[in-house]
C-alpha cells in the first residue's frame, strides 16, 4: 500500500538543534533531533538522511517539504521557507486544536503568538536580543551549577524557597547566581528562581500579545517541566505541553507542506 501514500517533511533549523519530521498523510511516522553544530548544512543533510531512512522512504518520494528556523537560509534543500512562528502555530494547532496562544522558548529567542482557530498567526511578539527570555539563560545557569539540562526541571520542583533575582538581565543574573552560591543557596532554589524570572518575562510578552487560552508551550523550554509550571503559576492557568515540544515547528512545517500540496493539487488526497 505504501506506493499510494503521500509523504511530507518539515525541517526546522534552530540555533541549538535541528529537527526533522516526516508525515504519511497527516500521521507523524518519523522524527529526529540533532544538535546544530558548527555547520548547519551538513547537519541538515545528515538528519534528513536519518529521518527518511526511519520513515523507510527515499527523498524523491516526498510530496512536499518546508524548511523553517533561524538557519533555514543555509539549508541544502530546494524547498520553500516559512517562518518558525507560523510553523509552531500550525504544529500546536494540530496537536491541540484548542490552542489560541503559543509560547516558543528556543535557544535564541522566546516568541509568543496569538493564533486563530485555523492555526494562523493573529499577532506575535519576540523577546528582543535578550538572553533572559530564552533557553540560553537556563543553559548558562545550569552550566554554573553543573546541572544537566534534563535535570533542571525535576530539581527546580524540589525547591521550597526560590531565590529572587533582582535583575532581569542574564548577564547580571550570572554573577548574581555566583554570589548566591557563595551565600549558600541551593541549586534547586536558584533554578526555581530562574524559572520565576523567565516566567515573569514571558507573562509580560503574553499580556502584550493579548493572550487567550489555551496556551501551549513549545520549543526546548517545553522540556523543562519546572518552567512550564512557573509560567502556569504566573498566569494562573494550566499550560499545555506537547510530548516532544522541540519537534513542534518541524511537525508544523510538514503539516504546512501537506496543506500546500493540497492547495496546488485540488483533487489529491493523502
Amino acid at each position: 500500500m505504501s506506493g499510494t501514500h503521500r509523504y511530507y517533511a518539515g525541517l526546522d533549523m534552530g540555533s541549538a538543534s535541528i529537527k526533522a519530521a516526516v508525515l504519511s498523510g497527516h500521521r507523524l511516522i518519523a522524527s529526529e533531533i540533532v544538535a546544530s553544530g558548527g555547520k548547519y548544512s551538513d547537519t541538515a543533510r545528515k538528519i534528513m538522511g536519518g529521518v527518511l531512512a526511519k520513515a523507510g522512504i527515499s527523498e524523491d518520494r516526498l510530496d512536499g517539504m518546508i524548511i523553517t528556523g533561524l538557519g533555514a537560509e543555509s539549508a541544502p534543500f530546494d524547498a520553500p521557507q516559512v517562518s518558525d512562528i507560523s510553523c509552531h502555530a500550525m504544529g500546536c494547532h494540530c496537536l491541540f486544536p484548542s490552542t489560541r496562544t503559543v509560547i516558543d522558548i528556543g535557544g535564541q529567542f522566546t516568541k509568543v503568538a496569538r493564533i486563530t482557530p485555523q492555526g494562523r498567526i493573529a499577532d506575535f511578539l519576540m523577546s528582543e536580543k535578550c538572553a533572559t527570555g530564552s533557553g540560553r539563560f537556563l543553559q548558562v545557569i545550569a552550566r554554573i551549577l553543573q546541572v544537566k539540562l534534563e535535570d533542571i526541571g525535576p530539581l527546580s520542583m524540589t525547591s521550597k524557597h526560590p531565590v529572587e533575582f533582582s535583575t532581569n538581565c542574564a548577564v547580571f543574573a550570572e554573577s548574581e547566581t555566583v554570589s548566591r552560591i557563595a551565600e549558600g543557596a541551593k541549586a534547586a532554589d536558584i533554578l526555581a528562581g530562574v524559572h520565576h524570572a523567565m516566567a515573569a518575562k514571558v507573562a509580560m510578552l503574553l499580556k502584550r500579545v493579548k493572550m487567550e487560552p489555551d496556551v501551549v508551550l513549545t520549543g526546548g523550554g517545553g522540556e523543562d517541566e519546572g518552567l512550564a509550571l512557573a509560567i502556569g503559576d504566573a498566569l494562573s492557568l494550566k499550560i499545555l505541553v506537547p510530548d516532544k515540544p522541540r519537534l513542534t515547528a518541524a511537525f508544523g512545517a510538514a503539516y504546512l507542506a501537506r496543506e500546500q500540496h493540497f492547495r496546488s493539487h485540488e483533487n489529491h488526497s493523502d
Binding site: 517562518s83 512562528i85 507560523s86 503568538a113 494562523r120 498567526i121 536580543k129
Partner: peptide, 28 residues
C-alpha cells in the same frame, strides 16, 4: 492595520536576525 514593531541597532549586521520576524508578519 496590523503592526510589527522592530527595534534595531542601526547596523546592517543585525538585519538577518529580523528576517524571521518580518517573514512571520508577512505570513500573518
Amino acid at each position: 492595520i496590523p503592526v510589527l514593531m522592530v527595534e534595531d541597532d542601526y547596523s546592517t549586521s543585525t538585519i538577518g536576525q529580523l528576517r524571521t520576524r518580518v517573514q512571520a508578519f508577512l505570513e500573518m
